[in-house]
């Protein structure tokens, strides 16, 4: 799994940091490093930028996996410069921001926008493959998710906006249903495309989504 992020415009970051003169910066050594949005280089770059705004950077670190519970340890090791700062600027995905927020009472400011959970297809090319809808149809759609890869999330075949295998939204993007059609045809399973898919249940796991994995004291459904 990769959490794909992009950097917020510096003007937005500057606006968010208004009134904070001392800032501590946290990056992430996993996804945000890979996407070049919150690795060491980007942390140092924003540090320089903040200093050009005459802010004091009380310290910085790149946490190996910001969304992991070990983040607490990394933050404890940097307790003093963290405490000296008025806020924490986080260059990790929203998972990292959430994790970090649980270990500090200081305001936590995101420097990145979290775009999607995706795969790296070739170096530097990321693609969203799953929106985590809670009702997987990949077995019937030749391993291509129409809920994610079709702009309209259609379940019963392509819209009329597709042509030459491309999407009406962007001629550089593939039409998910043409891909599904071609692969199902290749597999001799086009009958699956003829099957009617009823409306999706958008409440399979109502928000806020939570799951409790059974421990020895608990049953599968989370009851003790």
């Amino acid at each position: 799994m990769r959490s794909i992020t992009k950097r917020k415009p510096v003007e937005e970051v500057e606006q968010s940091l208004k009134g904070f003169e001392q800032v501590y910066i946290l990056g992430c050594g996993t996804c945000a490093t890979m996407t070049k949005t919150g690795g060491r280089d980007q942390v140092l770059e924003i540090k320089e930028y903040l200093e050009s705004l005459e802010k004091t950077v009380t310290g910085w670190t790149v946490i190996p996996i910001a969304c992991d519970e070990m983040t607490e340890v990394a933050m404890r090791e940097n307790e003093r410069p963290l405490r000296n700062a008025g806020c924490v600027l986080v260059m990790a995905c929203a998972l990292g921001v959430h994790r970090i927020s649980t270990y500090t009472n200081n305001p936590v400011i995101p420097a990145l926008d979290t775009l999607f959970i995706g795969l790296e297809e070739k170096p530097g090319h990321f693609r969203e493959v799953c929106i985590q809808c809670g009702q997987c149809v990949l077995g019937e759609t030749a391993g291509i998710c129409p809920v994610t890869a079709c702009n309209k999330g259609l379940l019963n075949g392509p819209c009329g906006g597709t042509n030459d295998g491309k999407c009406e939204v962007d001629k550089n993007k593939d039409c998910a249903w043409t891909l599904i059609y071609r692969r199902l045809k290749l597999q001799g399973r086009l009958d699956l495309m003829r099957k009617y898919h009823p409306p999706k249940n958008y409440q399979t796991a109502p928000r806020p989504k939570t799951v409790i994995i059974s421990t020895s004291e608990e049953n599968q459904d989370g009851s003790v």
Binding site: G157, P158, G160, T162, N163, D164, G165, W177, T178, Y181, K185, L190, M193, R194
Partner: peptide
């Protein structure tokens, strides 16, 4: 084009 998905 292709027409078959539209026919389905």
């Amino acid at each position: 084009t292709p027409i078959e998905p539209q026919m389905i």
